[in-house]
């Protein structure tokens, strides 16, 4: 690009004029409200909901109540498990997409993306109907003798995990595919020629080869999973509650804002960890590897 880096007046002014609208908007409606949450968590609860005068650590002290560590733990393990399953299934699918011919690939990609365009709520709700005590799936499974007469498929951690995998699977497939598209599949033949089995070649050559896509897939699945609200709300019941549900209860049921804010701050810290990890990892990788960024965002 022809423009010099530091031209004092007009360029500098142009930069401000093009930056200000978006930056200003996001400062006011994203950064400030987010900081407000952190501040709010150090306020005392108001007598009639909302928040009171002065400062207090009560909301944070309340986090020690035994029900909270259990919920945080459930949120983390369910999200990590969903991420592992999504990436595990996304790898072979991405592999197939990466080496399919043009026509098959376009069709498969379309099939993976179309469920995205169905309302998220409706997709989650579809599972509620399926897993319902009188739904087809349970009847069939009971009929086949796979599950007992009294087993419930709905309202437990398993249901939440299943539907999370369902909802976030495309988020894992797309970035892995984006990397697989640039992967040189001849490397696999080389590995085979050198005596590796297909599975070994897949594992030791393909998986590290699409590492960047896997990393993007982990972030794309793990973060929305950690912040899940609808899925545990619809198919989880009290036994499948996650941090998101607790935040909503504090806001809508007891209107205890400081409490909700402390939970939200906790969730913020937990979600920032994988982002920072991915960021550091990408910085480290970008030095020896000259290729362009993975472009893993779900802009499809």
């Amino acid at each position: 690009m022809g423009n010099p880096r530091r031209q004092p007046n007009p360029e500098r002014r142009n930069e401000w004029w093009t930056t200000l609208p978006s930056a200003g908007w996001l400062l006011v409606f994203f950064a400030v409200p987010t900081l407000l949450i952190v501040v709010m968590s150090f306020k005392p609860a108001g007598p009639y909901g909302g928040f009171g005068e002065g400062w207090s650590l009560k909301a944070w002290a309340d986090m020690a109540h035994p029900s909270y560590p259990a919920i945080v733990w459930r949120t983390v393990w369910l999200s990590v498990a969903a991420t592992i399953v999504c990436v595990g299934l996304g790898l072979p699918v991405g592999f197939l997409l990466g080496r399919a011919d043009e026509k098959t690939r376009a069709l498969l990609l379309l099939l993976v993306v179309v469920p995205f365009w169905t309302n998220f709520l409706i997709r989650v709700y579809a599972w509620k109907v399926l897993l319902h005590p009188s739904g087809y799936l349970r009847e069939t499974l009971v009929g086949l003798g796979i599950i007992g007469e009294n087993t419930l498929l709905l309202y437990n951690e398993g249901a939440v995990l299943l539907v999370m995998v369902y909802a976030y699977l495309p988020f894992a497939i797309l970035p892995i595919y984006a990397s697989a598209e640039k992967f040189d599949f001849a490397l696999l033949d080389a590995a085979r020629d050198l005596g590796a089995s297909s599975i070994r070649a897949f594992w030791l050559v393909f998986v590290p080869g699409v590492g960047r896509g896997v990393l993007a897939a982990v972030v794309m699945v793990l973060i929305p999973a950690l912040g899940s609200y609808i899925i545990p709300d619809i198919v989880g019941g009290p036994a499948g509650e996650m941090v998101g549900n607790k935040i909503a209860q504090r806001v809508f049921i007891d209107r205890n804002w400081p409490h909700a804010a402390a939970l939200a701050t906790l969730l913020m810290i937990v979600t920032l960890l994988p982002v920072i990890f991915a960021f550091v990892q990408q910085k480290r990788e970008s030095v020896p590897d000259g290729s362009r960024k993975g472009g893993g965002k779900a802009t499809a």
Binding site: W16, T19, S22, A23, F30, L36, Y229, V251, W257, T271
Partner: peptide, 27 residues
């Protein structure tokens, strides 16, 4: 300035919906 700008653009994408929802509601 653009580094900070990029941060402001990128963070809403990775922030879980529920965080954005509750912070805007309280705001």
């Amino acid at each position: 300035l653009q580094k900070a700008h990029f941060g402001l653009i990128y963070l809403p994408i990775v922030a879980p919906d529920i965080l954005m929802g509750i912070s805007l509601a309280i705001f």
